[in-house]
Design a protein around this nucleic acid. Structure first.
Lengths: 152, 152
DNA sequence: AGAATTAAAGACTTTTTTATCCACTAAACA
DNA sequence: TGTTTAGTGGATAAAAAAGTCTTTAATTCT
């Protein structure tokens, strides 16, 4: 569904936004540790975020990543588009290149509903709405300190 | 979402079922041509289907692939499980290894709905229900003869 | 100016997925 | 029994995704 790169991007963006709220601009080393992602790969993914202006980056001492307009709602959709492109949002579960209502695959009607609900979902969920859940304790940003069920 | 292997498997299975209805047992060469999939890769995928007893294979003259009990409804879900495993059906859009209601990611509630609807869908859609659409002309098995929008 | 800090960029490696090829085996049939 | 037909299985290759490393550039602080 989502590439690892997109997952890391989303987690990182939430963390950056929350730290910005606290008045700091985290660097990719810190981000990678806090969201549980590979350091250098995270750096690369954040480069892409910066290149597409979803966040800004400051170099040197006191530098790091930050949102220019933190109050502007940023849907997860925007991050996915930048990292994975928008192939999925018009994709076909049967593997057709050009599956549509005029020339549907045998799963078209059923899959279109799922796919469109997903599209709607990632447009509705934003960095801010996710950050809020983490702040009020109804969700977490990483599972670094979770004991896996198999390890109990 | 689905691997190429799973897509090819699903398309092939529908074709095999339809040909069985007509009294023939197609070979992987024919199948690959008819569903528009790479020949040798399709052979591999069908081996897996055979190994897991979803279909049977006959060698030698008059051989090919066939369903032992064609009337027994086969949900797409079964094919996906054999090829891709069932990781997706409990997966997390945020990338958590063990995302659940007790320890949710910030997208958990929203994504769980999508994911579960998808699971339900692939359990409801069967090889037979798809074949029926193709037979009555409301869907097609391949897009081999479709002119792509960009090529018009 | 110089040292320290931090992101940017690009090359590189590893792993996974997708795809191909060929030798082998089993079945059918003449 | 020999020939043809068709799937099986293992090796290999190519491409994409995931991850790593090193150098360079920009910024800040002293």
């Amino acid at each position: 569904m989502l590439s690892k790169a997109a997952e890391y991007a989303i987690r990182s963006m939430v963390y950056i936004w929350m730290m910005n709220q606290k008045g700091t601009r985290p660097g990719y080393r810190t981000i990678a540790i806090e969201v549980g992602s590979p350091e250098h790969f995270t750096a690369k993914v954040l480069q892409t975020m910066t290149r597409f202006k979803l966040i800004r980056a400051g170099k040197g001492r006191g530098g790091g990543f930050y949102f220019e307009n933190p109050e502007e709602e940023l849907p997860v959709f925007e991050i996915i588009k930048v990292i994975d492109g928008n192939k999925f949002f018009s994709s076909c579960a049967f593997g057709f290149e050009n599956c549509n209502c005029a020339n549907p695959c045998p799963m078209h009607d059923e899959f279109m509903i799922i796919r469109d609900n997903y599209t709607e979902m990632v447009q509705k969920v934003t960095i801010q709405s996710m950050a809020e859940k983490i702040i009020n304790g109804t969700a977490s940003l990483n599972q670094n300190n979770i004991v896996s069920p198999s390890a109990t």
